[in-house]
Design a protein around this nucleic acid. Sequence first.
DNA 1: GCTCGATTGGTTGCATACAATCGAGCTCAG
DNA 2: CTGAGCTCGATTGTATGCAACCAATCGAGC
Lengths: 233, 233
Amino acid sequence: MATRGLSVTNKLREAVLGGDYAGGTRLNEVDLADALAVSRTPIRAALSTLAAEGLLEYRPNSGYAVKSFAAKDIEGIYVVRANLEGLCARLVAQQGLSDVHRGLLHKVLAESEELQNVESWTDEVSDLWRDLNDRFHNTLIEASGNSHLAMMLRKSRAIPLLNQLKFRWFDMGTLARAHDDHSQIFAAITGGQVVRAESLAEEHVYRSGQRIIEHWRKMDTRKPAVATKARAA
Amino acid sequence: MATRGLSVTNKLREAVLGGDYAGGTRLNEVDLADALAVSRTPIRAALSTLAAEGLLEYRPNSGYAVKSFAAKDIEGIYVVRANLEGLCARLVAQQGLSDVHRGLLHKVLAESEELQNVESWTDEVSDLWRDLNDRFHNTLIEASGNSHLAMMLRKSRAIPLLNQLKFRWFDMGTLARAHDDHSQIFAAITGGQVVRAESLAEEHVYRSGQRIIEHWRKMDTRKPAVATKARAA
DNA sequence: GCTCGATTGGTTGCATACAATCGAGCTCAG
DNA sequence: CTGAGCTCGATTGTATGCAACCAATCGAGC
C-alpha cells in the first residue's frame, strides 16, 4: 500500500462490504481518523472514493453514510449483473479461450468437483467455495479482454453487507447445482456454443440472485428497529 | 452548487468530457487550483471523484492523468452499452410506460420528426439532435426504474473527448436513420414487443458505436505526435 | 401548551504549511 | 560514449487550524 489514503480506502471498503456498519450508518470523519490513527485528510479521500464507487451516499455539509439497499435494489442490480455476465460468457465463447485461461478454469472446476465430497456445509467450506466462485467468474471476465465490462461487473458485485451473508445459506444441493452450472458454462464456451454460453451464464447468475434476494428479505424484515435507528442517526 | 468541491468536480468533468485535455494529459493540482481560484483541497476531492468515475487515471505519488482511450477501448465500451440499452428497453417494454414517460418520449419524437425538415447538417442542428438523443435515452433509462442500470449507463456514456466529436460527423441520412430507430423502439415498447424492443435498442446503439469508432480511428491516427507527447508528459 | 426563532454544540468544508516521494538531469567512473 | 548513482526541483501526501454550515435544543411570545 503506497499511500495512507489508499490503505484507508481499502480498509474502509472491506469494512463496508463485510457488513461492519448497518445500512444508513453515518461515518464520522474524526472517529474514523482516530480509529485508524491518521488525520482526517486520507479519511476524506477514502470516503469520497467509496461514495463514487456507490458504497456510500454523500450529502453536502452532512457527510457520508453507508448506502442501504432494499430487496428491490438488489433485484435491480442482479438483473444488470446477470445480463453482463451473459455478455461476458458470450464474448469469451466468441473469441475462444487462451491456454492460460482454459487452464485456470479447468483447475477451478477440478477443485470444485473435489469439494462435492465434503459431508456438510460448514463455514470453512463456505469460504473455499467463495474463493472458487470468485476465481471462476474473475477468470471469465479477464478472458473477455474487456476492461470496461470488468469494471461494470466489479461494481455490480460489490454490495455492502452482501459479503457477510453470501454462501452462509448454501447447502450441498445448491453447491452441486452451482458447480454444475459452471461446468456447463465452461463446456459451452470451449465448444464455441455462443448463444448457449450466454444463456447459461445469465441464468446462473439470475438464479443465484433470486436466492440472495430471498435471504435479503428475511434479513431486512428481521431487524426493523436497527434499520430505523441507523437511518435516523 | 453547494460546496466548492462539487462545483469544481462538475467543471472539471465537463472539461474532460468536452475534450479540453488530450488523452494522457497530466493534471497539475496547483495549476488547477490557480485556474479555478480555490485551494488544492477541493481540487483533490474532484480529481479523486473523477478517477473513480473512470475519467482519470491515478498513480500514487504521481497524480492524475486524463484516461486515454484507444479505438479498441471504445469498442469494448460500446459492446457493453449496447447490451445495457437493450436490457433497458426490454425492462421498459415488460413493465410498460407510465403516462408521463410516454408523453416525454412522444414529445421527443415529435421534435425529432420536425428536425428532419432542415436542409443541411449544421452545428446548431447537431446540438439540437444531441439534446433530443439524450432526452430519448435518459427517459428510457428513467422509465426502467432501475437506478443501478442508470448508473452503469451513465458511466458507459461518459467518455473523454467523445462529447467533442459526437454528431459533428452526422449527416441528414444518419439523422433520419437514428430517428427511425427511436420511433421503432418506441413502437415496440408501447406494443409490448419485449424481444423486439431489446434487439432494436441494442442494434441501434451498436450501429452508432461502429460509426463513432470509425471516426475515432481517424482522429487517433491523425495526430500521433500529440498523443505521444501527452502520454509521455 | 404550542409554534417559531435564536443559540450553540458538533461536524464538515477549505486553506495552508510541512513532509515524503518521484523523476529529470547531472556527474563521474569505467 | 555509456550507464550507474546522486542531487535537486517539482509535485503530491498528510496534518492541522479555522471558517461555514446544519440540526437539535432551549426559550420567548402568542
